[in-house]
Design a protein around this nucleic acid. Sequence first.
DNA 1: CAACTCATGTAATACGTTACATGATTAG
DNA 2: CTAATCATGTAACGTATTACATGAGTTG
Lengths: 179, 179
Amino acid sequence: MKEYNNTTYAILGILTTGCKSGYAIKQLMDQSLTHFWKISYGQIYPTLKQLTANELVTVTNTQQDGKPDRKEYDLTPKGLNALKNWLSQPIEQIPVERNEVLLKLFFGKHQSTEQNRMQLEDYKRKLEERLQTYHAIAHSIQTHHENDPNAQYWLFTLDYGKRTTVAAIDWCEATIKAI
Amino acid sequence: MKEYNNTTYAILGILTTGCKSGYAIKQLMDQSLTHFWKISYGQIYPTLKQLTANELVTVTNTQQDGKPDRKEYDLTPKGLNALKNWLSQPIEQIPVERNEVLLKLFFGKHQSTEQNRMQLEDYKRKLEERLQTYHAIAHSIQTHHENDPNAQYWLFTLDYGKRTTVAAIDWCEATIKAI
DNA sequence: CAACTCATGTAATACGTTACATGATTAG
DNA sequence: CTAATCATGTAACGTATTACATGAGTTG
């Protein structure tokens, strides 16, 4: 079986949720997966073309009233199979998450205490904003996707974001005091 | 002032810690920055060349007894300036941390509860391993860099890793139960 | 008619890893 | 003599973003 990268499987997965065009895929990404997977049109359209060539999806040109034409992509049995196979595989390893704030703090010796503290305060503010976003997305899923069988899983991923963000905020507070 | 990417500043920063060759930079990276910034020789050597051309560092060929020759890089005042300027800038935005496990769980509807649980158990194991590594690095810093003025900052970055990893482990446990 | 949303697509560029190539020295 | 460590470097490839180009339809 041919190997694809995770972004390709992300697109394949989104096609099972009712989003069928490149544009709709981007929409869902920006709403729900934005906290742990983000891609641009520059990835989406070429990938859809490749998936079509490899027969994991089929494409249909559809007309809409009041909106421009769009291309509708549907998973083939082969495509669904590839998705399920990927889902069942454990990840190879946890990737290193690059963190610019940690990188700067690592060299904190070259700055004043005040400057290091400012950097942490700024980071904390940004983390708090992100936490608010997570709460907002969770709320939106609970109201707009009440009966969607996906909702449960989507909320799990959000819970991950909330928990790790809270931990990061706590760290900011502790480090600001300790510095 | 010319703009560089964070990897370039990471290299510039490491050059202030006593590591002066491409090889030594990689060594320190693999020991201490490995949990939040990782780069390959394919980035290091070309970047050192570029930094030399732009006069942020100078290079000297040095002979060592019992070891192959190596190139010694030293920050110029211009280089130290560029580093300090970068350190003082707040980050633009927190990047999205791609997470393959969350991506798979997001599409968990297409798998059995048992398969989802296995994926989480596996992830939890890997996180626990990582946590052990953090403890080991912290211990190593406390014993080998006792008097290094950098040690304090290095331990702060490790504390971040510990806290967020513990939060992720807790999430695994909670989600395994809830699923 | 201007601004916005819907919709698709590509080219240039940036970033990064992997694999490969080379070679000195040292320890067993 | 062989394996390991020290040391430098490049070419091919994969991945991803940004900017650009285009154009239909809708709302104010």
